[in-house]
Design a protein around this nucleic acid. Sequence first.
DNA 1: CCAGACGTTGTT
DNA 2: GTCTGG
DNA 3: CCAGACGTTGTT
DNA 4: GTCTGG
Length: 189
Amino acid sequence: MCGRYYRTFDKQKIAEALRATATGDPFLYAPAYNIAPTTQQPVLRLERETFQRELVPMRWGLVGFGTKGPDPKRSTFNARAEGLQQSSLWKRPLHRQRCIVPMDGYFEWRKSDKQAFRFTVGDEPMGIAGLWDAWKSPDGIWLQSFSVITTDPNTVAESVHNRMPAILHPQNYDEWLDREEIERPPIHL
DNA sequence: CCAGACGTTGTT
DNA sequence: GTCTGG
DNA sequence: CCAGACGTTGTT
DNA sequence: GTCTGG
């Protein structure tokens, strides 16, 4: 699982590091050390027509296109990699709306004693595989939102938890973001 | 066909 | 919107 | 994920 | 204990 993370890079640095155009309010890119679900956070995706990389602030906690809106009773800030194909909520996002969640690291709490652990990949920023969707509110305003994909833990993560976010290798970012591959999404990444 | 869901975690 | 269960 | 709340009435 | 809001 991944329910908290942190990011030290600001708008300009994220844009530079990811070679992307950063859109939206600079305030939403401010370094944050305890990021929680339902807050607006920048995610990386390809622009619909130009396929250029763009950073867009979205709500953490995916709100499906056809739902009635955000539902506090249902957690959608994580999406299990194993079940993405079997759910109407995740299926279209998996095929057409993949994104990457930039962060410096994430936190996990050990169940036994509630001890918090911080996970990073060295000193490098990391990109987590994510999905996004858009929902139109009754008053016509679009809400964009995203979810972090989780998978089985590696040997480091499993000492604390039985799930971990899907960390992408930088060389695979383009393949994950590809908006033209809608038949066979690169779930192997 | 319609109605209702559409999700995750851990159970130390 | 789309899928599953009844 | 954690922190904090956890209620009722009626209201054009 | 369970739900909501961030």
